[in-house]
Simulated assay, not measured.
Amino acid sequence: MAQLDIHSGTIVAHASETERAGFIRRTYLHLGGAILAFVGVESLLIQSGVAESFLHLLQGSKWMWLVVMGLFMVVSYVADKWAHSAISKEMQYAGLGLFVLAEAVVFMPLIYIALSKAPDVLGHAVLLTLMLVAGITFTAFTTRKNFAFLGPILNIGGLIALGVIVASMVFGFTLGLVFSGIMIAFAAAAVLYSTSNIIHEYHTEQHVAASLSLFSSVGLLFWYILQFLMSLMGDD
């Protein structure tokens, strides 16, 4: 998980109620902006035909998706570092923008397929994601418990999940409903962890980095809910 910059602002848990409320409000406003930007970029990529061409490229070789995943991990690391920058706000926003763009590119094939085969499933996935995020957010803010202990668990679980995904690509087996279900639970825990950090761990000037972390977790949850629903549709 990302390391927090300790040189700017006050830790949210130690800040005044006014500072804390302002930080949380800015974080969720930036999250909303990131989601709107993601939708706009995704729509442009699909309508321009880039998504279809990208899908054909991926279908041409099983190794292409591994390359895309590797590039996404590198870009995500750079974007997160920029978003945590204490140098300038411009660098922080550049990190958030870079991550939104990378996320839109990675989501292109899945959303294109969903729109082509079952557009209703996409709407259901969005609704279920919003409901789960709302429930997790309510839990985090009402209990006020610090879920920082989830960090190491998520790191280990993420490495295991990545290994399984890579193995499925190399050996050609499908992951199926069970894996998607497990990953939904994993992503929900990641949303809880990110939300808890917003309440307890971040500094009051790190709203851009906090929104990136939350956007990443929500995106992961949406990805596997959509995968799960599409797998169900395929089994019918």
Rank of each mutant, 00 (worst) to 15 (best):
Y93T: 00
G97M: 06
A79R: 02
R25G: 02
E103H: 10
M73F: 12
G97K: 02
A114R: 01
A148H: 12
A161D: 01
T139I: 13
T10V: 14
R25E: 13
V41Q: 02
S61P: 09
W65S: 14
G33S: 10
L128Y: 12
H200L: 03
G158E: 02
F173C: 01
L71M: 13
S168C: 02
M169F: 14
S196W: 02
D5W: 06
F38H: 01
I182M: 13
H7C: 00
V75G: 00
H84Q: 15
G40M: 11
V75I: 13
F149P: 08
I184L: 01
A189T: 02
F222Y: 02
S217P: 06
G123D: 08
S213V: 06
V164A: 07
Q92A: 05
G158M: 06
S48I: 10
I111P: 05
L122S: 06
S48V: 07
L229D: 02
M64F: 14
H56P: 03
L150V: 10
F141R: 15
A102G: 07
L55T: 14
I111Y: 03
H84P: 04
Q92D: 04
G219D: 03
V12P: 11
G95R: 08
P119R: 06
E205F: 03
L130M: 11
V178K: 00
G158H: 09
F23D: 01
Y28A: 04
M1L: 15
L44W: 14
S48D: 02
A37I: 01
A187P: 03
H30Q: 12
G219Y: 05
L57F: 15
V208S: 07
A102S: 15
F228W: 13
A51M: 06
E205R: 10
